[in-house]
Design a protein around this nucleic acid. Structure first.
Lengths: 254, 254
DNA sequence: CGCATCCTTGAGGGCCATCAAAATGCGTGG
DNA sequence: CCACGCATTTTGATGGCCCTCAAGGATGCG
């Protein structure tokens, strides 16, 4: 499957589950999904797309840009996950109705909106596509679990290396990675929030990654010479992303 | 809704979503769910119910006992979540097919088994019930997010207090909590693994909780005098459990 | 060129990991 | 009933990671 062609044919949804189960979608399903996007919108750096507790009757697909999920507490912000283009950032809102967290843009972003009524219709008419949607929400949970282990286990530099390894793989799956790294609007503060540390310590940890030749972060440009070295250092194994590793599945029933 | 009566009428599934959306289930749905359990089984302390990577074609409902989800790394075990009776411990396996983690018993437990074929059938025939199943898998994700924040933010004693607060609330929802605390087969080692610390430090943290009068853990018996004091100390708010807090929903469409 | 934002560096102290060892509780069997 | 072994819990001492307060440099924009 040629990803560039997919994106040309399906400008809003061409990256949905790319590198994962997109190959298991029929032409009809792809067209149906693309039609689900009733409306698109844009937002800028720091904009809040969804606020904790607000009731929603539609879900949001990230078409371009970066989004973080955050929870606020005592005025401090904690990031619990992040999203790349092609992700349905709040599909779980379909069943939860109110979210337990916020969705914030990092850098400019573009979104597609899908009403919950339309998703309900899909569930009944197209169970296979519905199951793929469910799958995507479970991917989020799998990534959460990996983050929990990462936080329980790794030191700050290794956590950052782990985040870099994950971002790089996920961007590659949707055609946005480079051979020697990736670009991101993330600041050091954002990285710190994703790794449960302070911006100051994140800065020192980044310096260490640089001096060890593991990853070079410079104002949003991440350059990595040796992927194995990075992934070894971070104790990273991409299985949990359900791409083509040990846990991958090729098709899904119904 | 009288929980004791529910459990008498539905011995295998009477605790499913109790305290959450069970009130939104029709009689027919409750009966259908109970019938889904084709088989039950028991297991003992330390038994592994599901192993990372193994392919499964049925899902498991925890009827009695405690279960933790673990990921192993370098011979060390990390707990990423836990389950109480009434939880579908591996419902996500329905869409993921292979799990990214293990499911281990803490103490003796009893399980019910539901085939994926039966769930698929439910999706088409009973979309409302299917959506409740989806909801339960998303609850897990919401709890994961809270754990991430907990690990990013709190010191070891506060993390433990947070875990206690969560277990207590969840046991209460399924009729297994007491006015002054709860009982659990968890050992100090298990608590340490859930909080990303060592057994030794967990022991000191538990001593601190005891001396501060926040919680008294003695060989699986947790006694708490003042719930507000505990929850304040742990910075715990039960909203994310989607019980009857700010994020709760009363009914779910379809 | 001034300002805001982001990044970088230094010093002191607290939380927690690690190594080591002792005490407690519990079931088994003599 | 007591001795014994085992798992679990408890205590002590040392050192490292990381938080905090503080201040100085770099970058980009109007």
């Amino acid at each position: 499957m040629d990803l560039a062609k997919e994106i040309a044919r399906f400008p809003n949804t061409g990256r949905f589950l790319a590198g994962r189960l997109r190959h298991d979608m029929s032409e009809a399903e792809k067209e149906e999904l693309e039609r689900l996007v009733e409306q698109t919108s844009t937002a800028g750096d720091g904009d809040r797309i969804v606020e904790r507790g607000e009731q929603c009757d539609r879900s949001t697909l990230l078409i371009e840009g970066f989004v973080v999920r955050t929870i606020e507490n005592d005025g401090r912000r904690y990031a619990v996950s992040f999203h790349v283009p092609g992700d349905f950032v709040d599909l779980h809102c379909f069943a939860l109705k109110r979210l337990d967290h916020n969705l914030d843009c990092i850098g400019p972003a573009r979104f597609g909106h899908v009403s919950h009524a339309a998703i309900l219709d899909i569930m009944q008419r197209r169970p296979h596509l519905a199951r793929l949607l469910w799958f995507q929400t479970l991917l989020d949970a799998a990534m959460h679990r990996e983050w929990i282990m990462k936080l329980e286990q790794l030191t700050a530099p290794r956590r950052i290396a782990h985040v870099f390894a994950e971002i790089w793989r996920r961007l590659e799956m949707v055609g946005l990675g480079y051979a020697d790294g990736f670009d991101t609007p993330l600041r050091q503060t954002d990285i710190a929030q994703m790794c449960g540390t302070t911006a100051i310590h994140a800065n020192r940890a980044l310096a260490e990654l640089r001096s060890k030749g593991i990853a070079d972060f410079q104002r949003g440009e991440v350059r990595i010479r040796d992927r194995d070295k990075l992934e070894d250092y971070a104790d990273f194994s991409a299985d949990y992303l359900y791409g083509d590793g040990a846990l991958a599945l090729r098709t899904i029933a119904a």
